[in-house]
């Protein structure tokens, strides 16, 4: 994942407000980047631009080499982008549909992407058969610009990748019992991975605790099998012991799946536990960037030092006034 000179200016009087100012960073596959800063430093705005809920004023973003600076065009591209990047929001109480059980929420996402993969495979197969019957000058550019090319590794690793071998005429993924079974297996796997019990998985969000809801939100994000997962203050709303559980879960998931994280937090302890590299934001500008240990142990900037000093540690006393 690569971000270059990302800038966001919210319109307003006096030229508007520069919330994010020329932020650049790289994230290796399977890496983990912490973005720290105080409230209003632009952390969440960066996240919202990355997932496409906010448009960037300037700069470029790409995941797996595919650009996402401009808004997605069409259902196929939206789906393809969903498989690149997912997010877990801060508030576990409002980030789940209140009328959907955990199981239903995760299954809906699995179905959605399975149907998309099948459609992409069909489109791809028909493109291929057309080019076999004779070179069609129009098919080449569509294939090059479209996000649905069959060589996409994100699509081929999906459990229903065998849909490529099915006849082009098959109407829907749901009709194939093999796909249904694969999806069911994947559903159980995901619920198991985030540590939800059978009973919890059938419960509505209002019957789940904050930590359990956040597990559901993580499972739903992972259901898209994304290359990168953004955790936008994903543990901030939880109490400390549950925070630790979720953080362990996240470490575990990364070790198992090789997913990359962008962890947005104001809590340096959380960043230290999960991240390899970090960047420090202040008023939308990157003021320090490097490996996590370097920044947190030997901060070069006063601001980082101040952030670090704000973390209570054993033996810490409130300043005397």
């Amino acid at each position: 994942m690569s971000v270059r000179d990302l800038t966001k200016i919210f319109p307003g009087r006096g030229g508007g407000h520069k919330a994010v100012d020329a932020v650049s960073f790289e994230l290796e596959p399977g890496g983990a980047l912490g973005i720290v800063g105080e409230s209003g430093s632009g952390k969440t705005t960066i996240a919202r631009m990355l997932i496409g809920l906010e448009s960037a004023t300037a700069g470029s973003m790409s995941v797996l080499g595919r650009d996402r600076s401009r808004p997605a065009r069409g259902a196929a591209e939206r789906r393809a982008r969903a498989r690149e990047l997912q997010i877990v929001f801060q508030d576990p109480y409002t980030s789940l549909d209140p009328s959907q059980s955990a199981r239903a929420a995760v299954d809906e996402v699995l179905r959605h992407h399975a149907a998309g993969a099948a459609r992409a495979a069909r489109a791809d197969a028909s493109t291929r058969s057309r080019s076999r019957s004779g070179p069609d000058p129009r098919s080449a550019p569509t294939k090059a610009t479209g996000p649905t090319s069959g060589s996409d590794p994100a699509i081929d690793t999906r459990p229903d990748a065998d849909s490529n071998t099915r006849p082009v005429t098959s109407p829907s993924t749901n009709a194939d019992p093999r796909d249904a079974r694969a999806r069911q297996t994947r559903l159980e796997e995901l619920l198991d991975q985030v540590g939800l019990t059978e009973r919890q998985s059938h419960a509505r969000p209002r019957d789940l605790s904050g930590g359990q809801r956040q597990r559901v939100a993580i499972a739903r994000a992972l259901a898209a099998d994304p290359a990168v997962l953004i955790l936008d203050e994903a543990v901030s709303a939880l109490d400390v012991s549950i925070q630790a559980q979720i953080l362990n879960l996240l470490v575990d998931i990364r070790a198992r799946t090789g997913i990359a994280y962008i962890l947005i937090s104001h809590d340096l302890a959380v960043v230290r536990q999960l991240c390899d590299s970090a960047l420090v934001l202040r008023s939308g500008r990157v003021i320090e960037q490097g490996s996590c240990a370097d920044i947190l142990d030997n901060p070069a900037e006063d601001y980082t030092r101040a952030l670090r000093a704000a973390v209570p540690v054993p033996g810490w006393r409130p300043p005397q006034h």
Binding site: R79, F89, T94, S95, P98
Partner: peptide, 14 residues
């Protein structure tokens, strides 16, 4: 304006 709607949009739902 509930985040769950944002989450669904990020999943690529129309």
């Amino acid at each position: 304006v509930s985040p769950y709607v944002d989450a669904l949009a990020v999943q690529g739902f129309g």
